[in-house]
Amino acid sequence: MLLLLASRQPEHILYWTGALTAAMVVSGGMLLAADQIRRLLGNSMVSAIEKLMGLVLTAIAVEMILAGLKNYFFGN
């Protein structure tokens, strides 16, 4: 991801590196605290969040597929 962003805007490489590092730290913290978060929210809430995130991921995937097909068949 960092390489892709840096190739488009090389003058912002430090910002991209900082943002990626921050995202990794937050993700790592969430993974380390996963058991406490599950206990705090409860199994039913975690299940609902998992389903919602699956729906969001599916919507993003469909949008990317449609954009790819559009570019393939109709160009930019």
Score class of each variant (00 low, 15 high):
residue 2 L to T: 15
residue 3 L to A: 15
residue 3 L to R: 14
residue 3 L to Y: 12
residue 4 L to Y: 09
residue 5 L to K: 12
residue 5 L to M: 11
residue 6 A to G: 00
residue 6 A to F: 02
residue 7 S to F: 12
residue 7 S to T: 14
residue 7 S to M: 08
residue 7 S to Q: 14
residue 7 S to I: 06
residue 7 S to C: 11
residue 8 R to Q: 07
residue 8 R to A: 03
residue 9 Q to E: 04
residue 9 Q to W: 03
residue 10 P to G: 03
residue 11 E to W: 11
residue 11 E to C: 04
residue 13 I to T: 15
residue 14 L to C: 09
residue 17 T to H: 06
residue 17 T to A: 05
residue 19 A to S: 04
residue 19 A to V: 01
residue 19 A to D: 02
residue 20 L to G: 06
residue 21 T to L: 13
residue 21 T to P: 07
residue 21 T to Y: 13
residue 22 A to K: 09
residue 22 A to M: 09
residue 22 A to D: 04
residue 23 A to E: 01
residue 23 A to H: 06
residue 25 V to Y: 09
residue 25 V to H: 08
residue 26 V to P: 00
residue 26 V to W: 03
residue 27 S to Q: 02
residue 27 S to Y: 04
residue 28 G to P: 00
residue 28 G to C: 00
residue 29 G to C: 08
residue 30 M to S: 01
residue 30 M to K: 03
residue 31 L to C: 10
residue 32 L to D: 01
residue 32 L to I: 04
residue 33 A to D: 09
residue 33 A to L: 11
residue 33 A to P: 01
residue 34 A to Q: 05
residue 35 D to H: 14
residue 35 D to S: 15
residue 37 I to T: 05
residue 37 I to E: 01
residue 37 I to Q: 01
residue 38 R to V: 08
residue 39 R to S: 00
residue 40 L to G: 06
residue 40 L to T: 11
residue 40 L to Q: 09
residue 40 L to E: 06
residue 42 G to P: 06
residue 42 G to H: 04
residue 42 G to I: 07
residue 43 N to R: 14
residue 44 S to R: 13
residue 44 S to W: 06
residue 44 S to D: 14
residue 44 S to V: 12
residue 44 S to G: 11
residue 45 M to Y: 08
residue 46 V to E: 02
residue 46 V to S: 02
residue 47 S to Q: 07
residue 48 A to K: 11
residue 48 A to D: 09
residue 48 A to S: 13
residue 48 A to Y: 10
residue 50 E to Q: 05
residue 50 E to W: 01
residue 51 K to S: 03
residue 52 L to F: 05
residue 53 M to T: 08
residue 56 V to D: 05
residue 57 L to P: 00
residue 58 T to A: 10
residue 58 T to V: 10
residue 59 A to T: 07
residue 59 A to V: 05
residue 60 I to C: 08
residue 60 I to D: 05
residue 62 V to G: 08
residue 63 E to C: 04
residue 64 M to R: 14
residue 65 I to S: 07
residue 65 I to Q: 08
residue 67 A to H: 05
residue 67 A to P: 00
residue 67 A to N: 07
residue 68 G to V: 12
residue 69 L to P: 00
residue 69 L to Y: 02
residue 70 K to G: 11
residue 71 N to I: 15
residue 71 N to L: 14
residue 72 Y to D: 07
residue 75 G to S: 14
residue 76 N to A: 14
